[in-house]
Amino acid sequence: MGDITPEFQKKRGGGGVDVTNLSAFAAGGASRTQAEIVAIIATAIIVIGGLELALRLFEVPLYIMPPPSAIAMALIKDFPFIAPHLGHTLVELFAGFAIGASIGLILAAVITQFPFSEKIIAPYILLLVTTPMLALVPLLILRFGFGYTPRIIAVALASGPMVMINAATGFRRVDSAKIALARSYGASTLQIFWKIRAPMALPMILVGLMIGSIFGLLTAVGAEMVGGGFGLGNRLTSYSSMIQMPQFFAVVLILSLLGIAIYVTFFLIGKKWASWDA
C-alpha cells in the first residue's frame, strides 16, 4: 500500500505557500532509472567542466571568478581552518531557530484559537516578517557585544515570524466535519487540538520550519558579516577583503550545501510524516 500513498503536499489551488514540490524530489529518490542517473551526471560534468573550460579559455583572472578546480582545492586545503567557523554558524542557527520556531509555533497555535487576538497581532507579525532583521544587527551588537547573543537574537527574529505565519495558515485550515467527528465522541478542546488541528496543520508547519530555517541561515551569515571575528559570514568578508577568491567561493559552496541539506531534511520529514493528501 505504501507506494500508492500520495506524495507530500500535492499542489492544490489556493494551497498557500508550497516550496516542497520540486519535481526532482517529488519523483521519489529510489525510482530513478539508469538513463536518468547518466543524464544527471552528464549534465553536472558539462556544467562544471564547461565553466572550468570557459574561465580558462577567456583567461578570467582568479580574483574575479576562480575556476571550479581552484574552488575545490581551496575547499579541501582550507577546510580544517573553515570548519570551526562552520561550527559557530551552526550554533547560532540551531539556537536562534530553536527559540524562534518554538515561539512562532506557540503563538500560531494560540492566536488561531482566538480569531479576535489574531486580528490585533497580525500587523505586528507582518512587520516582523517584512523588516530585514539584519538592519537591527548593529543595534544588537551595541547592546550585546560581538558574541553569539546578537546573532542568535537576529536568527530567532528572522525565523520565528516565518514559522508563525505558515503554521497559522495550517492551524486555520479547519475542517468542521472532522472537528464535529471528534466532538461527537465528546472530545475536549485540547483533544481536538492535538488529534485534529495539529495533524491537519503539520504539512504547513513543516513548510514554515523549512522557510524559517533557511531565513535563519541567511540572517546568521549576514549578522556575521556585520561584525564579530568568527563564523562563515566573517570568513566571507575577510576572504573578499584579502581577494582570496577560491576560499571565498569555497565558503559560498558550503553555505549552498547547508541550504540544500536543510531543504532535503524537511522534505524527507514531510514525506515520512505528512505524506497524506490534505
Binding site: A177, K178, A180, L181, Y185, K195, A274, W276, A278
Partner: peptide
C-alpha cells in the same frame, strides 16, 4: 454518526481511524 464523504482522518491508517473514538473516550 456517519458523515458525508466518509470523513476519515487522512493522516491515520484504517486501524487508527477506527480506534479514534476509543482514543477520545
Amino acid at each position: 454518526l456517519v458523515f458525508q464523504e466518509s470523513n476519515l482522518l487522512p493522516w491515520r491508517n484504517l486501524r487508527g481511524n477506527i480506534l479514534f473514538p476509543y482514543e477520545i473516550t
